[in-house]
Write a protein that binds this DNA or RNA. Structure first.
Lengths: 144, 144
DNA sequence: GTATCTGCAAAACATTTGCAATTCT
DNA sequence: AGAATTGCAAATGTTTTGCAGATAC
């Protein structure tokens, strides 16, 4: 998972292991996701990587992220309409989105948490927990 | 909340109580939401209500739903990108969306559930729990 | 008669699709 | 050469915005 992949070499091995042909663009996109904690949108990924890869197109980013999602190594977060954010962390955790500054924070969850929703007889494959409100940074800014 | 509002009169009282001017369109939109368990999209609301109100426009539905959300009587569910679904139920509960048929089910949660995510020092105002997978109806269909 | 509400048409975005050019082996 | 990948341009689909006409008190 994301956090241990600090070199291009280890990203390469990781993608191969997941059955994904490690093209230059795919490596760079996964590497960027793995080192970024902000759960970026396609726009953010594009803006950042286009500095290094001037020929990069958003279509490739969309293609690549869809491929990553289908391979189960990235999940798409639809915390708000009109933007998908991408997360290379596949363990169960929650997300907090701040109304004011728009930041998204990872929030740890109790280990037993995931089991507390009884899904009747449905077969559950994904669990998403989103909290929204005002983040501690913005609260601090208001106080003063 | 939604479930007790079975007459136009009680919807009217409810909207007035929430500080919302109960226009004809607003009454009809809220009434429809309250009696519908499928968490409809704007498209679905439009298709259904346009039968009764031929002059109705989607703009009015968007305006009205945004108004309802700002007044806190409806919440918008962004379970998937590219569609917002609307829910007049404001108590904490989870939603299950079926990959196959697209249906959304309400799922009850343990009373203590909502407190199990520690949001550090963030001020939490909304909690969304989304499960995805294959619903029991689709599972049954596959068996046979 | 003035505020508000409605709804058409256009704009704004994010995402997907078709397809041609490019790259890799 | 052949298969996979990339990326431009156009299409799609949802939500928002500008504004003129209708409605209500």
């Amino acid at each position: 998972m994301g956090t241990q992949l600090n070199s291009i070499e280890s990203v390469k091995e990781y993608l191969i292991d997941k059955g994904i042909n490690p093209s230059f663009q795919r490596l760079k996109i996964y590497e960027y996701l793995a080192k970024t904690i902000t759960h970026p949108t396609v726009e953010m990924i594009f803006t950042e990587l286009a500095k290094e890869i001037p020929t990069l197109s958003k279509t490739t980013i969309y293609n690549t992220l869809n491929l990553f999602q289908n391979s189960g190594i990235v999940s798409g977060l639809t915390i708000d309409a009109n933007e998908i954010r991408y997360d290379p962390e596949t363990r169960v955790h929650a997300h907090f989105k701040c109304f004011k500054c728009g930041s998204i924070f990872d929030i740890p969850v109790e280990p037993s948490y995931a089991d507390m929703v009884i899904a009747e007889e449905h077969e559950v494959k994904e669990r998403h927990f989103y909290l929204k409100g005002t983040c501690k940074n913005c609260l601090k800014a208001i106080e003063t």
